[in-house]
Amino acid sequence: MAHTDGARHRGGTSGTGGTAGTVHVGDLRPGDHACALYASDEERASILRGFLLGGLDAKHKILYLAGADGPRGPGELLEQCRFTGPPEVPAGQLEVLGPAELSPRQGELDPAALLGSLRAAVDRSRSEGYRALRITGDLCTALCDGRDVSRLLRYEALLAAEFGSGEALAVCQCDTRRCDPAALDAFASAHPRSVEVDPLIRTAELVVVRTFDPPGLRIEGVVDTASHRHLRDALQSVASVRGDVRLEMSRVEFLDLAGLRLLMTFARARAARHCTVELAGVPPHLLHVITLIGWDRTPGLRLGAAHAC
């Protein structure tokens, strides 16, 4: 186990979905081409919120490529993002292109035709004075025709070649519930990175990220006296989740006793609601400590497999 107890490095995490790296949505920069694999509407909304806010903040033009089930305009898109207080969107900065614009011949989506639309959009964005174009879309399902992912991959390849220049960034959404596993793998591997929600907590020592499948948190770094408050806040944010919660701990470098107690208190509170808390990837020495104290008998607590040394 290479516990360094050191500072957290930006973007230094490897993610799920078989991609080489994970990037938090707020850290996206022009030139990035990432996939967003989501398994719930809540997770998609959370990523989209970060994507939109990041774009508004950076004065990027935001283009949403909507499939047949996608939003029909900026208003509907903002609704899908589930903002508690929707942001002010200057006229023209957020554009939704629907199936009619994306496949003018009313036929199948054609990668080359799509690319043409995107090139035109980049030109338009530039002439309108935006610093960059950020594109996202939910075309994955439409492009994955059964098990045939060739059109999707052709589109992704064209996209990567076209937008590597730094004038645009793209996040390709994929609903993992609606995708064949093989297609999902192909889709993920067509992207150098995978995007995930912004961390609930990001300090020099501690990063806590909301996870969705299963619902829970991923805890990375150091929990000690200085960060108990942050961990408590993060746990509070999943306190209302229905059903079982998983806390992914394989990247915990240090967790003190009082921090461990916060997890036990959380489990006990969940047990009162007839739900469990799974601690996954717990470093072996912490499993040892949990057992020493007898906290392995905490109601509501499930101890997953230990993190391999």
């Binding site: 186990m1 240090f254 003190d256 470093p283 020495h285 400590v289 040394c309």
Partner: peptide
């Protein structure tokens, strides 16, 4: 090394805390 090193660090941390 490994688990025993992590436990020693935890022990010293808690005493210092």
């Amino acid at each position: 090394t490994g688990e025993r090193l992590a436990l020693a660090v935890l022990a010293v941390h808690e005493a210092a805390d």
